[in-house]
Amino acid sequence: MLELDAVEVLAGERRILGPVSFGLPAGGLVAIVGPNGAGKSTLLKVLAGETPPMGGEVRFQGEDMAAFSASRLARRRAVLSQSLEVAFPFTVFEVVSLGFDGAPRALTAGQKAARIEAMLERVDLAGFGSRNVQTLSGGERQRAHLARVLCQIGEAVDEEGPKLLLLDEPVSSLDIRHQVDTLRMARDFAREGGLVVVVLHDLNLAASFADRMILMRNGRIAEDCDPAALLNGQTVDEVFAIAMTRIDRGPGRPPVVMPHAV
């Protein structure tokens, strides 16, 4: 569904990504992990069609991603970014409804309102619709934006094929229960046939939900395998430059990793 072929991104003289090549089939949840500055967010921006690669090519459903218009992309993929500030006092309802605004669909105002309210309930923000989004806590705001992104993307698969959901540290402000809720929603989207790429810091959380994990280091891919293999291998310790203790959880399940020093 998504193929990267020798993709590179430079910032001035410095190479911040690549060259990386891999393919991601639909129907999976892929977690990208790695130390700060490893190029995870840059990779996600490339996958979003936002940062055009300076070398190589990204193919989205067989087509060069650069050929997609903004509005066509918006119907096929949605992005939840890090640290979202809303410049004006919009209500939570209005912010979520922006998801419908970008890529207009044939929905009446009443249908949109019903979907927005249902989505707010799904992210555990029922009754928050009339709150000023600027006064929400960090975690509540993150979930409000998740609701917006889910409204934008809609069904995981439509007549034109599977869709792409990109999440950049979607649980960074969330409590432990909402972390699990959010990743469950992401996994549901993948189970329904869509593709989810999510940047995460928590290796154990990533391993519990991902079908595949990509470990990045200095803009390159250090490891690309299933969660159990990644956490059992030694590359994680090397890339994060800290020795890990592994707690076995039985066959077929990834171990829980903890930094040795703790």
Binding site: K45, E50, A70, S81, V86, V95, L98, G99, A103
Partner: peptide, 11 residues
């Protein structure tokens, strides 16, 4: 209102 990147993401 959400930022330039988000406006692009929204189409």
């Amino acid at each position: 209102t959400l930022g330039e990147s988000e406006a692009f993401h929204l189409g």
